[in-house]
Design a protein around this nucleic acid. Structure first.
Lengths: 251, 251
DNA sequence: TAGTGGTCTAGACCACACT
DNA sequence: GTGTGGTCTAGACCACTAG
């Protein structure tokens, strides 16, 4: 006998369809585990698995409080990770890439910046080609989409550079952009390397992005080089299911 | 009172450490759920959650047979998705990118090719700018790393092109490479667009890649353009945790 | 304060593939 | 044949927060 379809599949399909057909709009409450259990004649535990499946697909928020699970907005936002035309437009307008990509999609960007000096962990030290535990300047941006947390971008600069370009440690927005300021001081980014990894979120990442443990995050590590040496690195944590990264490449 | 640490965390940490310290080598059997339950004085269900956590981190195979869960090889393989120097070397040597990237890392590549003609699903049709359900030529490569399934790359060509370049429908390796052959017939890829999405694997993907439901896959959709029109698209399914995709970009 | 999801248990049945 | 993980149940306790 073939393995029978698990009982938690059918309720999951039903809820998924309710969402697809618009009977459950973004922001609405999903059925509770107890409701779903009664409706399908299954145990609460099994109903929970159904809903957890949808959380791991990014369709529902985890919701471990009385408010319960909510339907998430699953529109996909294209991010132009490399697109010469785009980059030109941004640089001339002095507009952050995050802002231009979201506004182009008719959505509402937001950003909160936070500045610190920390000891470099091993991974960051390796990218920056410095010793681990060396102090580095950190600018962390928590970015929101339509008011919801969307991704975090953390940029690391060596303290040598931060001393020459003191605006790096200014909390809040830097008008011209940090890269333009660095260029004025002779630190010109000549090329980038993006390294992409994806994995389950840490509990901290899941909390700060409002996603379940089952939604993978992609870590985009973008290192900027001058004369073959790294001068800054930005690690962006993108949640799955709602983002599409695009790279335009020559043949 | 703060929420106490769930009971399944500690056994998971212990097994993870056993792996890290080499007491459990790749290929070895992980503790069974019943063993772990007895050892930590927890129920089998809870022990199962511990091991599932490690499966979702990619450290263990799912193993739903008597053989049990095994320790996976978690060495990370860097893939050069765009690296001009690399690309030059490949093209001149006529070597597949998969082969060169793996061998450079001192590992053993393998590849099985399978050719079909199918009706284009909506997504593929959109990328190729054709009508859905139009027949397309499909070359599907299941690629292995050190003998284990690693990723699948599926390339779609319109039948117009496949008729002019009949080698596209040759099962097995095409010596010079399909792109070079296409170029001889006037189909020259002038630039690429890579679109990246990541999500939980479908059951089929999980089975063919030998991963658990918790290991996210990244879908790399690479479209090749000539005169602004798409002439082929390759969708590669990469499992998480073992792959790093790298893009080298100009400023 | 009441209802939510998160966690945990003890027990059960099953398909499956090693042996 | 036998032990594996996958699934399922009924019940329980808990921290948390919306109302």
């Amino acid at each position: 006998m073939a393995r029978p379809e698990p009982l938690y599949i059918r309720p999951a399909n039903w809820v998924r369809q309710q969402i697809r057909e618009g009977h459950l709009a973004p922001g609405a409450s999903a059925p509770t585990e107890r409701e779903l259990a009664k409706q399908f004649g299954i145990s609460r535990d099994t109903a929970g698995r159904s809903l957890e499946l949808l959380v791991s697909e990014g369709l529902l928020t985890p919701g471990n409080t009385r408010a319960g699970r909510k339907v998430r907005n699953t529109r996909v936002l294209p991010i132009h990770a490399s697109h010469s035309e785009q980059m030109e437009r941004r640089r001339s307008a002095g507009v952050d890439a995050w802002v231009s990509d979201t506004q182009e999609a008719g959505r509402e960007p937001g950003q909160a910046i936070d500045v610190r000096v920390v000891q470099a962990i091993e991974e960051i030290a390796r990218w920056l080609e410095i010793e681990a535990d060396t102090p580095v300047a950190v600018r962390r941006r928590v970015r929101t989409l339509d008011g919801e947390p969307s991704n975090t971008a953390t940029t690391y600069y060596s303290m040598d550079i931060a001393r020459e370009v003191p605006e790096i440690l200014d909390p809040g927005d830097v008008k011209q952009g940090v890269l333009a300021l660095m260029a004025e001081h002779g630190y010109v980014t000549e090329h980038y390397v993006d390294a992409l990894r994806w994995r389950p979120p840490t509990p901290e990442e899941a909390a700060s992005l409002g996603i379940g443990q089952g939604v993978a995050v992609l870590i985009q590590s973008r290192t900027g080089y001058q004369d073959g040496h790294p001068i800054h690195i930005t690690q962006t944590v993108w949640p799955g299911n709602t983002i599409e990264l695009r790279y335009e490449l020559p043949a």
